[in-house]
């Protein structure tokens, strides 16, 4: 579990900076107008959603979630065995434009939000429910985003002496 979160974190820092820093720097209008999703915000979110097969918009980072629902979502992704290489998290607390924009983009008023292969899956309750029912495992299996379960070794293990 801790391995998962650690390796996740490494994939986390950069996408936040690259996908969103440019737009937030050039954004002229403050979040007052965030209800009208601008083309530049929409484009940046398009890019964020497509940045990995599994994308979570959350509060905080996988290692330091800032909200219980974001934490629970990260834990479910870990339990499901999502491949860290196929996962990116975006911290909405780092970018007000993203935080407001993603709500409108998904027509979903709360964070966290999960996307799989660019398709919106749902928020924390939906993840929990799908985790319990087995639907989430099916979805991840079909999307081919699970980490390989075992390193397949080429040589059979030789019996050890004594």
């Amino acid at each position: 579990m801790s391995l998962f979160t650690r390796s996740l974190l490494r994939t986390v820092g950069r996408p936040t900076a690259t996908a969103f820093a440019p737009t937030s720097r050039t954004a002229a209008l403050p979040s007052l107008f965030a209800r009208y999703l601008s083309d530049s915000t929409r484009a940046a979110i398009d890019k964020a959603v497509a940045s990995s097969p599994v994308v979570l918009f959350m509060k905080g980072t996988p290692e330091f979630p800032q909200c219980g629902f974001s934490r629970a979502s990260i834990q479910v992704l870990g339990l499901q065995g999502v491949d860290p290489k196929k996962f990116t998290a975006f911290n909405v607390l780092e970018d007000e434009e993203l935080r407001q924009g993603i709500k409108e983009y998904s027509s979903w008023p709360t964070i966290p939000q999960l996307y799989v292969n660019k398709e919106f899956v749902g928020g924390c309750d939906i993840l929990m429910s799908m985790h319990g029912s087995g639907e989430l495992a099916d979805l991840f299996e079909k999307a081919e985003v699970l980490a390989p379960t075992e390193e397949e070794s080429k040589e059979p293990v030789k019996p050890t002496d004594a």
């Binding site: 209800r35 027509s107 979903w108 008023p109 709360t110 899956v121 939906i126």
Partner: peptide, 28 residues
């Protein structure tokens, strides 16, 4: 599920967007 949650969110749209309004809504 997604549509069910969305229909409830839409009933409370303004209250959820409002500063100091509904901050979290767990749904079953």
């Amino acid at each position: 599920l997604r549509a069910r949650h969305q229909s409830i969110y839409s009933l409370l749209k303004d209250e959820m967007a409002m500063e100091g309004g509904i901050h979290a809504l767990q749904l079953k």
